[in-house]
């Protein structure tokens, strides 16, 4: 892989973000709104019942982590969609870039977009609700990394769909994460799910990540095995996502859709 080419493609998206204040505002706006909403809901629960003690901290931390996942996936999809919307697809795919360099550039730029949205929301939660995700400590890095890999994987799967089915797949891009959210056990423990759904949920990294987050915040215990499991599952999905992306790319070459995908 040639880093200067990856940087070139990253630069295309950085220029895009830099060029538009409303675009930056949009990146910050939604995560911040999420924090306000979940912050007030969980504050209400805490005030209404002692059962919900410490709810603000746990729910808000979950909301921030979930938003981080959501932003990383959507950022990835958005950057790919930008190429389709701007009818730049042909130019991109005839540039001397390896597919692995395109994937790397999108993956690296997605973190940039994600952090623009998530950092202000994370910082806002500290003075407004007295909640800091940094209370998780060093494991936070691994939980975020695991979430990021899974978010990028979802992005890869959606972009594979865009390559396979064209721009009509765009709606799936927006809805992709909502399909998995109920199984991710983001705001509730896995025991809430029926037994058969628990089996499905366990093969997703989200359950392991959010269960571990609650474990650290409630019990103050770090379960390294759970973190490692989430990381390994995320990585397996990532490899699968890359494989599916390559399949979609070669399929698009066969069908000749790379040349007119923006139309």
């Amino acid at each position: 892989m040639r880093w200067h080419k990856i940087f070139g493609l990253c630069l295309r998206h950085i220029y895009l973000i830099k060029s538009s204040f409303p675009r930056i505002l949009d990146l910050i706006y939604w995560p911040s709104i999420q924090i306000f909403l979940w912050g007030f809901i969980s504050k209400f629960f805490t005030l209404s019942s002692s059962y919900y003690n410490n709810t603000v901290g746990i729910i808000l931390t979950a909301a921030i982590l979930y938003d981080f996942l959501f932003r990383s996936s959507i950022s990835y999809n958005m950057m790919f969609l930008e190429e389709i919307w701007s009818r730049n697809f042909t130019n991109l795919f005839i540039a001397p870039l390896k597919i692995s360099e395109i994937i790397s550039a999108l993956t690296l730029t997605a973190i940039f977009r994600t952090l623009i949205g998530t950092i202000p929301a994370t910082l806002l939660a500290i003075p407004l609700f007295g909640v800091s995700i940094f209370k998780i400590g060093p494991p936070l890095i691994f939980l975020l990394l695991s979430l990021y890999i899974f978010g990028v994987t979802l992005g890869l799967l959606v972009t594979s769909g865009l390559l396979r089915f064209g721009p009509s797949f765009e709606n799936i891009a927006w809805a992709s994460l909502f399909f998995l959210a109920p199984l991710g056990c983001i705001y509730y423990p896995i025991e809430i799910l029926p037994d058969w759904l628990q089996l499905i949920a366990l093969i997703l990294p989200l359950v392991h990540i959010f269960e571990e987050m609650r474990n650290i915040l409630i019990n103050d215990i770090i379960n390294l095995t759970a973190i490692a499991v989430s990381f390994i599952i995320s990585f397996i999905y990532f490899v699968l996502g890359v494989f599916i992306f390559y399949l979609a790319y070669y399929g698009a070459k066969n069908r000749g859709t790379l040349i007119n995908i923006g139309e």
């Binding site: 295309r12 220029y15 895009l16 060029s19 190429e83 701007s86 009818r87 730049n88 697809f89």
Partner: peptide, 10 residues
């Protein structure tokens, strides 16, 4: 002319 460059970039 049917393939464009990113419109938002200079």
């Amino acid at each position: 002319p049917y393939v464009e460059l990113p419109k938002k970039l200079t």
